[in-house]
């Protein structure tokens, strides 16, 4: 804690503790933390570790809401500990628990491997099948700003798992793919460089895929980056229905440019002057 910071209030942190070597089940331990203006929950956990209990375990890295490591359940709401100021959510008590719907490895550390397995199963990368593209990796893909806008929002996902913890369907159905992997699938489906939508449909269109979502909307409410996974999943369902009914237009993935002047010029932009040399 910086020396200049003045303690505003003392807050009781009710932290879930679990050590698989000693404990049969998680239990709650309370720590009193002096809190100053601007102090985040992550700062509070550091205070506990440095001054009260060095055995407390949690996961974190960047401290600025970018890496997605410190997702936790704060006062019953899944969010990032580094992005949440204590005085904004607590008057006297603050409950800190690991993200639900995942196994607990220790204390506040959930095991996110199952989420990443589901994510990987949906091929979250650009898939190309054309021979020419694979054999000639030189050049850049042409993609217009409008093409980019169709999926840009979903690229901001930091895989913090807050949406997975908030989802009520995932609470009862462990096989459901969940908001994060499905939003990632939609992100690549809408990418004009990609040609893997029909491959992904085999997974996303199954019983535990996109149609398991019934729009409780908690994923979008919980997302600390504004990704809106619920919207991505509804657009994914629409695409699945159109594909199933053979109503969607089969578009070729975008081609590459191998030099200047091959792209589609924007309207109202004058032509470049003639070359002088």
């Amino acid at each position: 804690m910086p020396e200049s910071a003045k303690t505003v209030r003392e807050i009781s942190f009710h932290v879930t503790r679990y050590n698989p070597e000693n404990d049969r089940a998680p239990y709650i331990k309370t720590y009193t933390v002096p809190v100053h203006e601007g102090m985040t929950v992550l700062d509070g956990l550091h205070y506990i570790k440095e001054n009260l209990d060095p055995s407390l375990a949690w996961r974190y890295s960047c401290r600025m809401g970018v890496c997605g490591s410190c997702g936790m359940l704060l006062n019953g709401h899944p969010t990032l500990a580094c992005n949440t100021q204590i005085l904004h959510i607590a008057n006297a008590d603050l409950t800190v628990a690991p993200l639900p719907n995942f196994e607990i490895i220790r204390d506040l550390v959930p095991d996110l491997a199952i989420m990443f397995d589901k994510h990987r199963s949906l091929k979250p990368y650009v898939v190309r099948t054309d021979e020419a593209e694979i054999n000639d990796p030189a050049g850049e893909f042409y993609q217009s700003p409008e093409d980019l806008e169709a999926y840009l929002q979903y690229t901001y996902c930091i895989k913090c798992a807050c949406c997975m913890a908030a989802c009520p369907t995932l609470a009862t159905d462990a096989r459901y793919l969940g908001p994060m992997p499905l939003a990632a699938a939609q992100r690549y489906n809408e990418d004009t460089r990609d040609d893997g939508r029909r491959e992904r449909n085999r997974q996303t269109g199954r019983a535990y895929g996109a149609f398991r979502c019934h729009y409780a909307g908690e994923c979008s409410r919980a997302c600390p980056k504004g990704v809106d996974p619920a919207k991505a999943i509804q657009h994914l369902k629409r695409r699945l229905v159109l594909d199933y009914l053979h109503l969607s237009r089969r578009k070729k993935p975008c081609a590459k440019l191998h030099g200047p002047g091959q792209g589609k010029p924007l309207p109202n932009i004058p032509a470049a002057p003639a070359k002088t040399a």
């Binding site: 639900p100 607990i104 609470a171 729009y215 908690e218």
Partner: peptide, 22 residues
């Protein structure tokens, strides 16, 4: 050993700050 922290039916009925869609 890991502790299974799946919410089950409580995931439908309890916890969290809910919105009207929930």
């Amino acid at each position: 050993e890991r502790h299974d922290n799946r919410l089950g039916i409580w995931g439908w009925l309890g916890g969290g700050r809910w919105g009207v869609e929930r």
